[in-house]
Design a binder for these strands. Sequence first.
RNA 1: GGCACUUUAGCUCAGUCGGUAGAGCAAUGGAUUGAAAAUCCAUGUGUCCCCAGUUCGAUUCUGGGAGGUGCCA
Length: 326
Amino acid sequence: MVSPNLNFKCILILGATASGKTALAHNLADKLNAQNKPCELVNLDAFQIYKELNIGTAKPTHEEILKYNYHGVNICELNENLDANTFARLSWEFCASIAQKNKIPICVGGSGLYLRAFLHGLDSLPPRDENIRTQIKEVANAHGWPYCHEWLAKVDPKRACELHPNDKTRIERALEIFLLTGKPQSEERSKENMLKEQDTLFPCYVIHCKQEPLILKERICLRVEQIFAQGWTQEVEQLFVKYGESLNSFHAMQAIGYKQILSSLFHTKTSQIPQGDLVDKISTLTWQYAKKQLTWCAKEKVDFTILNNNEENIDDLLKLVICWKP
RNA sequence: GGCACUUUAGCUCAGUCGGUAGAGCAAUGGAUUGAAAAUCCAUGUGUCCCCAGUUCGAUUCUGGGAGGUGCCA
């Protein structure tokens, strides 16, 4: 494995969905460019990486992608997926290549684990293995996840202690690591607790784009209505026409809204008009997601917080960023 | 107007053969080491519609009233 080039410094804008990260990034990039501090943008959003998920992921427009030299957008086919480690490595490469051009990378994103992997790195554990996972799932289907948890307790008691017997995602992963390496995950980790890690692998000026909860909730409802008005349903319909039933098995369809719209296409005859129920459901799911994002954000060391897109804040931020010497 | 059904958590509903009640969803908080917009965990005092009766005790049974739904006029 080639060791990554981490010889760069970057600006990171994090925050919940619909908090205004993208607009802030564009604003900041415009201002820095005007001050002869050229910059390029790097997407750190786990679903804007997909080529055909445009409307529902609130992806920057084609014009914006060109204008701001976006990296990390439209880099995956819809039936592919990108694990957190690969995502982090790609993002590092984007940042390093921008820095080589004497430009500043401005990274924008809010996907918890992916952000964490980018900032702090993951241990060198083996990537997921579909064959092993199939074997584990067979056991789980036959005996249930608590049984697999007991199995894990025999091979990696420390990790088993950390996990709830129903936590299938992590039990599966821990068993996978043991079956692939013959060693317990808890012994292979270099960090006792990843979340206590505060140092980033490279100098990073972290900006939290924050909204008061009530305002954020309103913005989320508004955004969901807007993206339906932009033709979200039609986007999903076109994907279904192109990929058929197999669309359901694509990991990309885990994105909030897409799977709900997809299933509604089979249950309503008038799919052209989004039902109020569907809009409400997706707004709720997005709000729940936003709260989880904020739990991740709260763990990071933040250099600057912008509340409710306050323009004065942004001017202060600009001054600080310009004289930032890590 | 008559008949039937119905009224319990923010919502949809269980349930208590009479001893003041619990699921799902929502809400709130937390976790998070390669599918993470995923996944998992924790948190439930609510005039059990109102009034009266029976009873040691009524959300539960009886009577009356009010709201809702459906059918018939």
